[in-house]
Structure formats: C-alpha cells, structure tokens
Design a protein around this nucleic acid. Structure first.
Length: 568
RNA sequence: UGGGGAGUGGUCUAACGGUAGGACAACGGAUUCUGGUUCCGUCAGGUGAGGGUUCGAAUCCUUCCUCCCCAACCA
C-alpha cells in the first residue's frame, strides 16, 4: 500500500449503486450483477432511453456483471422488426455490448406453463366478461372493485378455457386470463390484473404460433427471473407495479419456475430536457405532421436524430453521467447537453473556415500574381492533427456578420476604415463599401498590409479582431443547416389557455444557408465533424455526397459578443 | 374520498446527525491570430413550511403544504 498517494476522491454513489454495493456486500446474488435494457420495439429510441441504456449497461460494467438487451415484444399489434434493428444499432452506437439478446417472446411457452400453474393453484382464472364489464368491476381510486362472476369458477374449468383460448377457439376480447389477487386492493394494479388477452395477430417473431399474448406486468418480471436478472431498473411510473411484479414471482412457492433469489425492481426518474418533448406519442406527431423531416431529423431528441446532428456517443455518455440518477422528477437543461458535445468536439474536431453568409471582400492592392497560400493548423492546441494549405487571393468571401457599417462600441471586426486580421493570412483595412440601389451592402473593398503576411504586423501593432475568410475563386458551395431548439419555451407543454403545444414550435429551428467553405472540405465524408472557426461545430449530413456538401450545425460556439451587444 | 412517490441555488446532483460541496447556467477578470478554448474569481445566509428531539438536524420525530404517477385487453 502506498501511503503517499492522496486519498482517492470518495466518488459519491447514486442510490442504485448503493443498493448494488449493499447486495454485493451481503452476497445476495453471490456477487452477480445482471441488468437488462428492455425496450418495446415500437418506436425509435430517444435520449431518455440513452440515459437508461447508460445506466443499465454502466452498472453491469462497473460491477463486473453484464447487461442483456431484451425486447419487450408482448403486443404484436404495435411492434415491428424495423424497430428492433434501429434499437440494436443505437445501443451499439452508444458504445455498449449486450451479454444476451432476448425477446419476451422467447419465453412465451414458459410464461404459458407458469400461467397454467397459477390457474391450477387457484391464483388465476379465465374471465368471460367484456372489457367494459371488467373496467366497471375494477372500481376506481375511491371505491373498491367487485368480483367478476367468473372469479370463483373451478380451476379445471379455467384451465380448459385457457387452453381453448390458446387453441384459438375464441375471438379477440372474448375472454382473458386474470390473476386472482384482491379486488378491494387500494393499489388498482392488484385488482385482479389481466395476464393474457386474445389477439389473433401476426407477431413479428413468433408469427401465428400464438393467439394469446401476455401482458407487460406478467411477462416482464417473469422474463427478468428467467434470465436471472439481479436488478431490474425502470422508470418511476412503474413504482406501483412493483407489488405486482413481486406477486407474480412469489407465487412460484416451490421454486420450480424461477431461480432464487428473485430479481427486484428499482425505479429512477426519467430524463426530460428543456425545449423539447420526449414522449413517443408526441415525437410521432412531430414526424407525422411534418413538423420535422423524420425520426432522424437533427432537431429530434432521438438517438438517430442526435447522431445525425453530430453528437458523439462519448458526449451522450458524459451527459448521462452528469445528469445523474435519482428519484425526483427532473428536467435537464439542454445547455448541459450542448456543453457535453462542445467539450468533446473542442478537443477532437479539426478546424476549418466556412463563410455562412457570404459578403465579397476585394483586396485592391493584391494582384492575382501576388496571391499565396497559407498553412493553417487543423487544431491550434494539437499539432499532431496536422495542417492544410488554404489559398488567399484578391477576391474573398467573409461573413456578413463580421462587417458593420457603423461599428458599435467594442466592435473588433470589420467596419469602414477599420483593420482586422484575416485569420492566418494578413491584416486588412476596409476602404470602401459598395451598395446596391436599395442601399444594401453588396461588396467591400480593402487593402492589405503586405508586411503582415501570415497575420502578424511587423511593427507589433495590436489588431483585436480576427475573422475567417475563404478565397472566392477556390470556395466550395455548401448547404449549411443551422439548427436551433425545436421549441421556444423551456417546457413546451406549458402553453397558454386555449393553445396546444404545436404552437410552441420554434419557427426558426432550422435555417438553411448557402455557405462558401474552404477547398480542403471537398472530400468531406458523411458523419465527419468539424469546427468551423468562430461559428460552431458541424457534421457532414448523411445526404451529402461527392460534390454535394451538406453540413448540420451540431452546436454553436459560445458567443460572448452577442451578450456584449445585447447589454449595450 | 384511495394508493404510490418526491421536495437542496436558475437547472441537475452530493452531503447517510457534526462547517451545504460539485457540474451546467449566469456574472466579473486574465490569456488568446477562433469575442472559441484555457485560467482565475463571484454567485446558496441556508435544504417546501411550522413544531419537536439533540451540544449540534438537509439528515431523526411530528403536523402541514406543494408537485408527480396510477382507474389500456399499452409498455
């Protein structure tokens, strides 16, 4: 033991880690930790799922255990293989590997067998009531439920009926299998919940092998137990399903179906993000109503949307780590997410120059013959990332945002008579402003100081402003998609009386500009990420192809000038 | 009129009876050929409220308040 080493930071544990460590201490699961990520394959994963994925896989990894990917496919009418493929891809992209890939449907036979066992034990019965009657019989929060007339029917009769349900003798909705628990239970979930319903529907994996399908509450806990899951982690809304989760497993009194110790369910607060919606239903509406272009629209909080936007798996994992895990309802600030991607890309994204809103600047005292190339580092602080050569010529594009006809206070950029540095190239003074008939600025003229070639003034004069530029003759056209929050309000659901959340959509959540970018970007490949100096981080969109450059703004750089100006 | 949860700075999150800490945001300042980055600094008079126990309470007890979830043959 080295006593010289400083005491290791006692990294605090979240409540789940505390539970697991306590279980490890007590040897409850013989030192095993097995978690699972259990998506229903009925939609695309979003950043809330990413939190759950990082949590479950993170815990498995941290404690030397593992994590299963289990598709909760108990409802054939809503699920599809299309989704299982995308879910697999997203989990893998996030950087996780699952120990086993399972499906609740893998256990249909075992689930069925256990159901028969429960019927024989008098713990379940076939109910012939309609869904309306069942609903009525369940009572409500304030009044206890009443027993179904079929509740006390002999086990043999239920068994026969259940088998005939399985055999396909009845129509959808004609009968159900119910757990016999307690119709007066204060927890509605315990008032004889449904275990099976009839659905003559094609299942994406089992085809037409089954026409009865188990309900979530029955299937989920049993699946956990079958796989030997130790810690079954879900979100808060399942908290009052826990007694039912336990009930189903505890009915296996002789331990013939599940190995002990049984898994336990724990609940944490789901992720919410400011300026966006997260529910599958609302996300689907955004897609269907064409408010966004699809599930992978870069404005969507879906994993595929964030990926297309340019987010890295590392940044999403860092985000999940930073928001933490607890039991109080939470809304994370999207600024934290943006911080995470900036932090990641600041370190790794090669730098480039791109003029988003081009304005011509002609250097009147630079002849074509005097044009030159400058060598620019791909990353100021990381020389190992190399450099590239950029042509500097008489006619340049600069950003309109970098010119002001009337310079406000503290304005370091271009203005009539002002001198700025063109990054890495030269010092230039604006000498003339050309306008069209309407008075709009259409071109700038200026002169350069040949002694400043490379960007530094030989006399040591200070030039505070540095702007980016692109040689007009060499510039490449690019479509640049400037994304912003999808919703203006922090909480899109907090709308004034008489309005609905659709009206809160940010009308400028997407602005498309025709940009001019430096020639080194010619071969940019879909998925690559760059920092466009002074503007932001951009990723090449998946629709880009040779000769067609499309960039998505992942996140803007922090902009302290806009703050200075806002205050003035 | 039921049941289940939760309340710590603008936002997340720690503190497990012993000086309320961190991150993000915000705000100053230094450095800078990105108004970026980096660095340094400021920012809670107190943990929903009241009462109690204790030498000492965010942590224990108690009363109250507020918020969230639950009455699909969805998950």
């Amino acid at each position: 033991m080295s006593e010289a080493a400083p005491a290791p930071e006692p990294k605090s544990l979240n409540f789940l880690e505390e539970i697991i460590e306590a279980d490890l201490q007590s040897g409850r699961h013989q030192g095993r930790v097995l978690t699972r990520f259990p998506p229903e394959p009925n939609g695309y994963l979003h950043i809330g799922h990413a939190k759950s994925i990082c949590l479950n896989f993170g815990l498995g990894r941290k404690y030397g255990g593992a994590t299963n990917l289990r598709f909760d496919d108990t409802n054939p009418t809503k699920e599809d293989v299309e989704y299982v493929d995308s879910i697999r891809e997203d989990v893998r992209w996030l950087g996780f590997d699952w120990a086993g890939e399972f499906y609740a449907s893998d256990y249909f036979q075992q689930l069925y067998d256990y159901a028969e066992h429960l019927i024989r034990a008098g713990k379940a019965y076939v109910d012939d009531q309609s869904d309306e009657e069942i609903k009525r019989g369940r009572g409500n929060f304030y009044t206890p439920g009443t027993a179904s007339p079929w509740r006390e029917r002999p086990a043999a009769e239920s068994l026969d009926l259940f088998r005939r349900m399985k055999a396909g003798e009845f129509r959808d909705g004609e009968r159900v299998l119910r757990a016999k628990i307690d119709m007066q239970h204060p927890n509605m979930n315990m008032r004889d919940p449904l275990m099976y319903r009839i659905r003559h529907a094609e299942h994406h994996r089992t085809g037409d092998a089954w026409c009865i399908y188990p309900m979530y509450d029955y299937a989920h806990g049993c699946s956990d137990a079958i796989e030997g899951i130790t810690h079954s982690i879900c979100t808060l809304e399942f908290e009052d399903h826990r007694p039912l989760y336990d009930w189903f497993l505890e009915q296996d009194v002789e331990g013939k179906f599940f190995r002990k110790p049984l898994p336990r369910q724990y609940e944490f607060a789901r992720l919410n993000l400011t300026h966006t919606v997260m529910s599958k239903r609302r996300l689907l509406q955004l897609v269907q109503e064409r408010i966004v272009t699809g599930w992978d629209d870069p404005r969507m909080p879906t994993i595929c949307g964030l990926r297309r936007r340019g987010y890295t798996p590392e940044s999403l994992r860092a985000f999940a780590e930073k928001v933490g895990v607890a039991k109080r309802d939470m809304v994370a600030d999207v600024a934290l997410l943006e911080h995470c991607i900036r932090e990641d890309l600041e370190a790794r994204a090669p730098r480039r120059m791109a003029v988003l809103r081009p304005l011509k600047l002609v250097i009147t005292n630079l002849s074509d013959a005097e044009a030159f190339e400058v060598e620019l580092a791909n990353h100021g602080e990381r020389p190992e990332l190399g450099s590239r050569r950029v042509p500097f010529t008489r006619e340049l594009w600069i950003d309109r945002d970098d010119f002001r006809e009337e310079a406000p206070k503290k304005w370091f950029r271009l203005a009539p008579g002002a001198e700025v540095r063109l990054r890495g190239a030269a010092l230039v003074t604006c000498t003339e402003v050309l306008k069209d008939a309407s008075g709009a600025v259409v071109e700038l003229r200026g002169t350069w100081d040949p002694a400043s070639k490379g960007g530094n003034a030989p006399d040591g004069r200070k030039v505070k402003g540095t702007i980016h530029w692109v040689s007009a003759a060499h510039a490449l056209d690019a479509e640049v998609r400037l994304y912003d929050h999808l919703f203006l309000a922090e909480d899109p659901m907090d709308v004034p009386e008489g309005q609905d959340w659709h009206q809160g959509v940010n009308p400028s959540s997407l602005e498309v500009v025709r940009a001019r970018v430096e020639p080194s970007l010619a071969e940019a490949q879909a998925g690559e990420r760059y920092q466009f100096e002074r503007t932001g981080y951009f990723a090449v969109d998946l629709e880009a192809k040779p000769g067609v450059l499309i960039f998505n703004r992942t996140a803007g750089l922090k902009d302290s000038w806009s703050k200075i100006e806002a205050k003035a």
